[in-house]
């Protein structure tokens, strides 16, 4: 495995399977009363969050703490970053503090690449702009595998604002690596130009794709898209691309519904669908911790067995 996890494309099929298998082992820990492992004792993980994202930060924090790492949360608000300190100076500060791993969430695409040129520790991308969010893709793949088994040949449909979605980019890359058959669905305005060069199918018609899908992953549509002519109104979007009960009824019985959160109930997904037993939305949160444990373990302490002498 590479030293950093910045793009899902950094992972070979073997890397990805190793992370997923390791996460499966670690998941056993989560069901115990004492959830902590000594694996990363003495290592320091910095959560460097330039965007508010409580759920992702908490997920990484829990993952690092369960591996006994020291965790430093560094959020842009109230720190020197908000006073105009550059990313480079922040990176050099972290470097001076001896961070073994830096988990970065940043509003600018490519910020983790830049960070990786300034620090020696491993950089984990926790979401950069409209580029990628590789640990989200890993936890999604982990969730799918637990529900559906091997992903080879599985039909996975991702619906929504592909243009601005780091989740979609990472999922397409990882799921392709894992042999799944991905279809992206969106209005034409929410696809990037040249999306036809991506390793997936594209469709403008959710109803045509839905009955064949094993997984339907809904992406959040951000409020700021409403006023930028990507689609006429929220209601029209919801009618054409929302997962309502009628569409849910046309899915295969075994098919599952996913959402990376936070979701807009009633917009891209009906409340009843989000809360159905075939929705994995809450599971995804739990799986996020174990998947991120696997990533941190393999990047920062991979020479020792994941589940050490305490078995």
């Amino acid at each position: 495995m590479k030293r950093h996890l910045i793009s899902a494309a950094d992972l070979t099929r073997d890397d990805a399977l190793l992370i997923l298998d390791t996460a499966e082992e670690l998941a056993q820990i989560s069901s115990r009363s004492i959830k902590k492992l000594p694996t990363l004792r003495g290592r320091t993980v910095v959560n460097l969050f330039f965007e508010d994202s409580t759920r992702t930060r908490i997920s990484f924090e829990a993952a690092a703490k369960r591996l006994s790492a020291d965790v430093i949360n560094f959020s842009a608000k109230g720190s020197s970053v908000s006073k105009g300190e550059s990313l480079k100076d922040t990176a050099l500060t972290l470097e001076a503090m001896g961070a073994d791993g830096v988990v970065i969430r940043h509003g600018a695409s490519g910020a983790p690449h830049r960070l990786a040129t300034w620090v020696h520790g491993s950089v984990v991308n926790a979401g950069d702009g409209t580029h990628e969010h590789p640990t989200q893709a890993l936890l999604d793949a982990f969730t799918m595998r637990r529900r559906l088994g091997d992903l080879e040949g599985r039909k996975i449909t991702i619906v929504g604002d592909v243009l601005h979605s780091r989740v979609a980019r990472s999922n397409v890359l990882l799921l392709h690596t894992l042999g799944a058959d991905v279809t992206l669905v969106a209005p034409p305005t929410l696809f990037p130009i040249a999306v036809d060069t991506w390793p997936c199918q594209i469709s403008y018609d959710l109803d045509a794709v839905l009955p064949k899908s094993d997984v339907v992953m809904m992406l959040r549509v951000q409020a700021e898209r409403m006023n930028a002519a990507y689609f006429p109104t929220a209601r029209e979007y919801s009618r054409r691309y929302g997962l309502d009960l009628a569409r849910f009824g046309r899915m295969q019985e075994h098919a599952i519904v996913m959402h990376p959160g936070p979701m807009v109930r009633g917009m891209e997904i009906a409340a009843e669908v989000a809360d159905s037993p075939r929705s994995t939305i809450v599971e995804q949160v739990a799986n996020g911790v174990t998947t991120r444990m696997a990533v941190l373990y393999l990047l920062l302490g991979g020479s020792e067995p994941a589940i050490g002498g305490d078995q």
Partner: peptide, 18 residues
């Protein structure tokens, strides 16, 4: 806009410059 709109801007998640 950040980068020529095409294969690279789509891949890198940089706002396209058509």
């Amino acid at each position: 806009a950040q980068l020529n709109e095409g294969v690279m801007s789509a891949k890198l998640g940089l706002r396209g410059w058509p």
